[in-house]
Amino acid sequence: MNFGKQFKEGLITNNPVLVQLLGMCSTMAITTSFFNGLGMGVAVLVILTLSNIIIAAIRKIVPDKIRIAMFIVVIAGFVTVVDLILKAFVPALSESLGVFIPLIVVNCIILGRAEAFAYKNGVLASAVDGICQGIGYTIVLLIMCIIRELLGSGTFGGGLLNGGAGLRLIPEQFGIKILTLPVGGFIVLGVLIAAMQWALARPKKKEESK
C-alpha cells in the first residue's frame, strides 16, 4: 500500500469535503471560529481513525447484510466516548460545538470511508486512510474558519489566542458580518469547491492543449 499516495489523496485529489462532497453539514455549521474548527477536525480525525481500524479488523466476520448497522454502532460508540471526554476536559469546546458532536455519528465522511475503504482493506491501510482523510477534513475546516473569521469579524484564532478573543487584524467596523452568519458558510464553501475544481481541471487542460 502506497502511503504517500493515500496522503495526497486525502489532502488534495480525493479530499473528503472539497472533492467527495461529504460531511457538508458540520463543515458549514461550526466553522465560525478557529478553535471550533480545530476541535471538530481533531474529534472527527480521532473517531474516523479508530472506527476505520475496528471496522477493518472485524470486516471478515460481519455478514454483508447488516454491515451498515454494524458500522453505525461502532461509530456511535466512539462518538459517545469522544463526546464524554470533551465534556469532561474541554467543556468550552463541547458547549460551542453543541449538538454537532453527537451528530458526528451521521457525518457522511465516516460512514462513507467505512463503506468505501475500511470494509475492503487491511487494518494498517485503513488506519492511515483515517488519518489522511481526517487531516484533509481538518484542513478544509481550518481554511473555512480562517476566511470566515478574518473577513467576518476581523480576528484570527478566536477561542484560542489572546484569552479567547483572538488577535485583531482588521478593525471591527470593517468586518463583513454576513460571513459569520449561516449565509457565509454556504458561500465560502461554494467558492472553495469552485477553486478546487478549477485547480484540479488545470493540469488536464494543459495536457489537452499539448
Binding site: 462532497l21 454576513i178 452568519l181 449561516p182 449565509v183 457565509g184 458558510g185 454556504f186 458561500i187 464553501l189 461554494g190 467558492v191 469547491i193 469552485a194 477553486a195 475544481q197 478549477w198 481541471a201
Partner: peptide, 20 residues
C-alpha cells in the same frame, strides 16, 4: 456561469442566497 462554478459550487451559492 463560469466553468469552475458549474454544478455543486453554484448550488451552494444559491443556497447561501436563499439562506440570506
Amino acid at each position: 456561469c463560469p466553468k469552475c462554478f458549474e454544478g455543486f459550487p453554484i448550488a451552494l451559492i444559491t443556497a447561501g442566497l436563499m439562506a440570506l
